[in-house]
């Protein structure tokens, strides 16, 4: 049922609408405009036509983001479960440990990984001290990039899942046990299905920054791992007349990718309304 808003309520929304128009809708229109014009500001499909040259970069970005999201889910779910089921005092400590890195800027966190994994870094110094001659080459590999994504974005997976597990009513676990379900069976038959909403928001919150990152791949990829974020950044940095237009076209594709993944998530959570209704 729709309620009529009073004048005051409508006035209160004005700053918000102005904000959205200026900083969200406006830039998107610019992206659209640049994507479909050439350097003479003439309407053109040439930028879109060039996108094929970047298909391998798109594929790599999607692949890395998928792997990072999957690993975050595999690590994050048990971690969130353990946190939600432990004593309140333990929960508080674990929560602080989880949140602590998030107080530090993403750039610095990524740098710290670089320090750790570099040829002259902590791990390799240790290996050297243990008698290894050649440094273990980690930086510059896909492994390092995915590791960076996992390290940076894991808390975004854990938090929503933790919230939905702690909200789960103990009655359902007791009912499952009453019907003969083992504790492990209960996790799969009751806890997992009832925390799907938490999983979905965790997946979205890790997948979206992973697919659009450029900093992690630059630092940990050692310049050899170009992801879509890097390509876009490079286009805009070049600031040649044409690069802006290609960059906008690439951005458009990325936005569509993110939109599609969000739609898929919504579709799944609609199909499973049970968990949300509790």
């Amino acid at each position: 049922m729709k309620k009529k808003l009073s004048l005051l309520e409508r006035m209160a929304a004005v700053p918000h609408i102005v904000w959205i128009a200026l900083f969200i809708v406006g830039p998107m229109l610019f992206v659209l405009y640049f994507a479909f014009t050439d350097k003479n500001n003439q309407f053109s499909f040439s930028n879109i036509g060039q996108l094929g040259n970047y298909s391998h970069i798109f594929l790599l970005s999607v692949l890395f983001a998928l792997i990072a999201t999957a690993v975050c889910l595999l690590i994050g779910y048990p971690l969130a479960y353990f946190m939600a089921r432990s004593k309140p005092s333990t929960q508080r400590i674990l929560m602080i440990l989880l949140m602590l890195p998030m107080w530090v800027s993403l750039l610095i966190r990524t740098y710290s990984l670089l320090v750790l994994l570099d040829n002259g870094g902590l791990i390799n110094s240790l290996l050297k001290a243990m008698g290894r001659k050649e440094p273990l080459k980690i930086i510059g590999t896909g492994f390092a990039v995915v590791l960076g994504m996992i390290y940076d974005f894991l808390p975004y997976m854990v938090l929503p899942i933790y919230t939905s597990i702690s909200k789960l009513d103990n009655r359902y676990l007791e009912a499952a046990a009453d019907l003969g379900c083992t504790p492990v069976g209960t996790i799969f038959r009751v806890v997992l299905p009832l925390t799907v909403p938490g999983i979905l928001s965790g997946v979205t919150m890790v997948f979206v920054p992973s697919i659009s990152t450029f900093y992690i791949s630059q630092k940990l990829g050692g310049g050899k791992m170009e992801l879509i974020g890097d390509t876009i950044e490079r286009q805009f940095k070049q600031a040649t007349a044409n690069a802006y237009h290609v960059g906008a076209a690439l951005s458009l594709v990325m936005m569509i990718l993110i939109l599609i993944s969000t739609l898929i998530m919504n579709k799944i959570s609609d199909g499973d309304e049970g968990g949300v209704l509790v």
Partner: peptide, 13 residues
């Protein structure tokens, strides 16, 4: 033993 719980506790999913 099986229980009919006071507050039902039916699985919502």
């Amino acid at each position: 033993v099986n229980t009919v719980f006071q507050r039902y506790a039916l699985f919502p999913h």
